[in-house]
Structures are given as C-alpha cells and as structure tokens.
C-alpha cells in the first residue's frame, strides 16, 4: 500500500546538553498507522527524543529517516547530511506536535489558533482554512467555543484545541509530549478520548505518556526508556504483564 517501509526511523540517536548525555543510541522504527507509547521515569529523555524528531532540539549524532528517506544525519555535532531547506520544511510538516503545556496562542481565539498555520504555512485561503478549522474543532468537541480566547477554557479544552491546531496542518504523524501531565485528573479523560479517536482513525502516533491505562488500551507497541536508553519494547500486553528489564519491572511496579 505504501511505497515506504517506515514512516519514521531513527538510528543511533545521541543527544547531549554539554557533558550531560540525555539520549544514548536510540533506535526506533515506526510504521504507518502505528501507535507507540513511550513510558519511563522522568529524566529518561522521552520528551527530548520527541523534540529532537521535529528539530526543536538538535541531535548530537545519529540519523533520522522520514518515509525511508534520510532526513538528517549528524555526527559529533556536525551535520553530515540534510535535505534542502524547502524539502526539510515539507518533511517536518508531516509531524504535528502537542505539548505538555498546550502552548496555545493566547491572543488568538480558538478558530484563529487552528487557522493561522494553514493560512501562513500551507498558503490556504481564509475560507478554506475556516471551513477546515470548523470541522476539526467539531471533531475535538468544541464547536461551541469557536470564538473564545484560550484563557477562558479549561486545561482539557485547551489541550483539545492544541490537538486540533496540530491536526489542521494535516500531519501524518502526531507527536504527543505528555499531553495530560499538566491537567487536573478529571480533565484527563476528555483529552485521552480525542487521542483514542485519532488512533482509531489510523493516525500514526508517538505518545510520551504517564497514562498506563491509555498505553495498554491504545498502543500497538510500548517503549520503555530510562537513562536515555530504550531498555525494553514490545506489545503492551507483554511489556506490562511480563517485563524483563529490571528497571522496567520496578518502574511498572511503582506506577501500576
């Protein structure tokens, strides 16, 4: 069906902040439509990994492939290979990102938040963007909040707008960086609901999360990270019920 094997692949990814090594030799392959949950103790490098995928962090060395095409290759802080600027921009747009702290644009209404990037980046007309935005906002269940400023929304609603904003760019992969970590417990459900809906509709997703229930239910694969390394990965059922790595065992014991 697809002309490529992996929609996203990283090889030997390293990242250090000064002398602190945050990511050590991360290898991961993501297939089209796969939902992968990354779990692990804080400080494991989960967020950094996600952020280095869409270039919010510069990797120290390693290779990133998008749709089997080498997107970036760096060794010892030097870029060995990268695609040309225009193509790089287009390839990065394949990834949508949702942040822990929402990062909505506070001076723009819900609709404007969702419409701005399609208009500025995808060069859509205002009418097209408006029509698409309305559909997407409806999908996350906020049709009655179209012209409201983010400050008037609850955390859960804000995060749903943030998801809608990322979806409006029609990405093929969605990166979720602890999307429910800064929410009040009673608001977590509504955000997970939207994410489950996305997963059901075949979206390729990479979620850093502490919601083990969600990981169990939705993930095709769960990756356990600690100390900047992937220590274990597998089907949720296997990993949750029968972890092999010691750190994974103690981590799962503490969160489940």
């Amino acid at each position: 069906m697809n002309e490529f094997k992996y929609i996203l692949k990283t090889e030997n990814l390293y990242k250090s902040f000064g002398s602190l090594e945050v990511l050590k030799d991360i290898n991961l392959e993501v297939k089209m439509g796969e939902v992968i949950c990354i779990i692990g103790p804080s400080g494991a490098g989960k967020s950094t990994y996600l952020r280095s995928l869409n270039q919010l962090e510069r990797i120290t060395s390693g290779k990133i492939y998008i749709k089997d095409e080498l997107f970036l290759h760096r060794e010892h802080n030097k870029t060995i290979h990268k695609v040309e600027a225009d193509k790089q921009k287009a390839m990065l747009l394949e990834m949508g990102m949702v942040f822990q702290r929402f990062n909505l644009f506070p001076h723009k209404t819900v609709l404007e938040n969702v419409m701005i990037a399609p208009i500025l980046v995808r060069k859509k007309t205002k009418d097209e963007a408006l029509k698409a935005a309305k559909t997407i906002v409806e999908r996350v269940g906020l049709s009655d909040k179209l012209n409201v400023y983010p400050s008037k929304l609850s955390g859960g609603q804000q995060q749903r707008v943030a998801i809608a904003r990322a979806l409006a760019m029609e990405p093929e992969i969605m990166l979720f960086d602890e999307p429910t970590s800064s929410l009040d417990p009673e608001l977590v459900g509504e955000v997970l609901g939207v994410m489950k809906d996305l997963a059901r509709n075949g979206m390729t997703m990479l979620c850093v999360t502490h919601e083990m229930g969600f990981a169990k239910e939705v993930a095709d694969r769960v990756v356990f990270m600690a100390d900047g390394m992937i220590l274990e990965e597998g089907k949720p059922k296997v990993l949750f019920e029968n972890p092999k790595n010691e750190k994974a065992i103690s981590f799962l014991k503490s969160v489940l």
Binding site: Q55, L56, F99, N103, L104, F105, I116, A117, L120, V121
Partner: peptide, 18 residues
C-alpha cells in the same frame, strides 16, 4: 514571551519572520 510560543510556532512550520 514564553519559549513554548516559539516552539509551538516552529512545530507548526512557521518561519522566524512569521
């Protein structure tokens, strides 16, 4: 202005000027 605003804009593909 919060750094997250820059990151969100970048993640949406906006240029520095935009």
């Amino acid at each position: 202005i919060d750094k997250g605003q820059h990151e969100a804009a970048k993640a949406l593909g906006m240029s520095y000027g935009q």
